[in-house]
Amino acid sequence: MKTLPEKILGIIQELPEGEVLIPGRFLHLGARTAVQRGFSRLVEDGKLFRVARGLYVAAVETRFGVRPSAPEMVVQSLAKMRGELIVVTGARAANNLGLTTQVPVRYVFLTTGRSRNIQIGNIVVSIRHAPRWLMALGATGAGDAVRALAWIGEPSAMRAVARLHTVLPKSEWQALESAQESMPSWMTDAIRAQSNRS
């Protein structure tokens, strides 16, 4: 007969990588204290990582050994669980959009929720509250463009907007144009100038 930790692990192994787990989701297997002990045992055995108080993610087994889940996947799962928007920072968005070759080395995300840190194995992930205007277009190409422009700053805005006009799909560019009233004036000026040129 399987032990409680083995039963928990059996369920966890069927879930997608990075899914954030809470012990309360497993109460159908036993009493809360027993489930909590089962989670603790799985952490000790290297099968789970505790990312924050009461939050866990499964270790990923590969042919090279065990590794933590990808931070991006954990953050996506956390956003879904908490019902908040969590997106990449302007630096990462600028890199993804080809506006810079700099690759951020730290894992930092922006959120509509509260600021906090989580730890996935040895990786510290920073989740920082961002102003409403920076998050207004959500997790879209246009939203990434706004965050990238905010990171790049006013002096390079015209050049960055010209590049964005070529890489963003037409629908994302139109979304960017339609959200100008929520942006700083320098950003609006750069977008409007590009729209007038095209």
Rank of each mutant, 00 (worst) to 15 (best):
T140A: 10
P104W: 10
W151G: 04
R63E: 15
G153S: 07
P16A: 07
L9K: 00
L48V: 12
K7L: 09
Q194A: 15
I127F: 04
S69T: 14
R41F: 02
F26L: 05
E44I: 08
T89L: 08
L110P: 01
F49I: 04
E84Y: 00
I11S: 03
G138V: 06
V87C: 03
L99M: 06
I22N: 10
G141I: 07
T188F: 04
A34Y: 08
A160S: 15
A91T: 00
G65V: 06
V146P: 03
T3M: 06
P5F: 06
H28G: 09
P16F: 08
R67W: 01
A93K: 02
P23I: 02
R128L: 11
S171M: 10
G54A: 05
I118H: 01
V57T: 15
R159F: 02
F26H: 06
A130Y: 03
Q180K: 14
D45F: 02
R192L: 14
R25E: 15
A59G: 07
L48C: 06
L176A: 09
H165V: 06
I120C: 05
A91P: 00
M73C: 01
V74P: 05
A139H: 13
G24I: 00
A58D: 05
Q13T: 01
N95I: 06
A190M: 02
W151V: 08
E154F: 07
P155A: 15
R41V: 15
A148H: 04
L15F: 03
A70Q: 05
R53I: 07
S178N: 15
L21H: 09
A130M: 06
P71L: 13
L15V: 01
A130I: 07
P104K: 11
I152A: 06
G24A: 11
P131N: 13
Y107T: 04
V35M: 07
L176P: 08
T188M: 13
R114C: 00
V124G: 00
A59V: 10
I123P: 00
W133N: 14
I118E: 04
T3W: 02
T89Q: 10
M183C: 12
S198M: 08
Q76M: 10
T100G: 05
S77F: 03
R147W: 07
K2N: 11
A142M: 11
G10V: 02
A70H: 04
A157Y: 03
I12D: 07
I11L: 09
E181K: 14
P131I: 12
E172M: 06
R37V: 05
W186C: 08
P131Y: 12
G38I: 10
E154T: 03
N117K: 12
N117E: 11
L137F: 11
S182Q: 15
M135Q: 13
G138C: 10
P5Q: 07
A142T: 11
T33F: 09
K80I: 00
L176I: 09
V75N: 04
